[in-house]
Amino acid sequence: MIDKIRGSVAEALADVPRRGAMIAVGGFGDCGAPLALVEALCELDVRDVHVVSNNCGIGERGLARMLIEGRIARFTGSFPAHAEFLAQYRAGRIHLDLTPQGTLAERLRAGGAGIPAFYTPAGVGTMLADGTFPAAYGPDGEVLAYSEPKETREFDGRTYVLERALKPDVALIRAHRADRLGNLAFRLTARNFNPLCAMAARLTIAEVEGVVPVGELPPDQIHLPGVFVDHIVEEELIGDRAA
């Protein structure tokens, strides 16, 4: 019998590498972000993380906590606006792969869809495509590495850049409803990057607001089929929300 519901957050996170994992995190800002799961990883002392996410946290929760605690070594995303991110990036502690938002979404989608790379017009003629954006600084503020120059190609008279798929080790996502088969439904704009992260990753863990019996989610209202999901834990079992 397939049963992806875990009784504790420790069980749900047991297979997450403690060092150097590439971890995709769903959410747009805090909307749809698995704040409690990310903080549970901090409690497990997970370090040197390569985070893939649109943002790198707001305030002090979720990815912001992981950032403030110095656990992030590399970040792939579109808008890491946290002040602490700028400080650590400029001090040479975080390598930044800045990625246009739609390119980020498509790199995850491609990773989940068995497509290794694709061409997009986003970024053509900019420093993100020509390899002049500072990706990593040294401790004295000197640029140690620039972004990779991207291959370009013309199709029908228009120039595009080649972008590689993302295949994270782990995805942490958040959903509204789940069943034990792993089927998920999201609520309103909390969907955003969550299904894409789940599809791309080798191991997907979802925090959910509630679990329902199999068959209660109508098949045509399942936003992410359970085949993409490994472990589910109810939010009330995670961290400070258990109180």
């Binding site: 579109s78 808008f79 890491p80 606006a81 002040a83 991110f85 700028l86 990036y89 930044l96 800045l98 990625t99 246009p100 938002q101 739609g102 390119t103 997009t120 986003a122 970024g123 900019t126 993100l128 954006f133």
Partner: peptide, 11 residues
């Protein structure tokens, strides 16, 4: 030198 963030503008 300021915060790096591109969002969806290039797309």
């Amino acid at each position: 030198g300021r915060r790096p963030g591109v969002g969806g503008a290039m797309d």
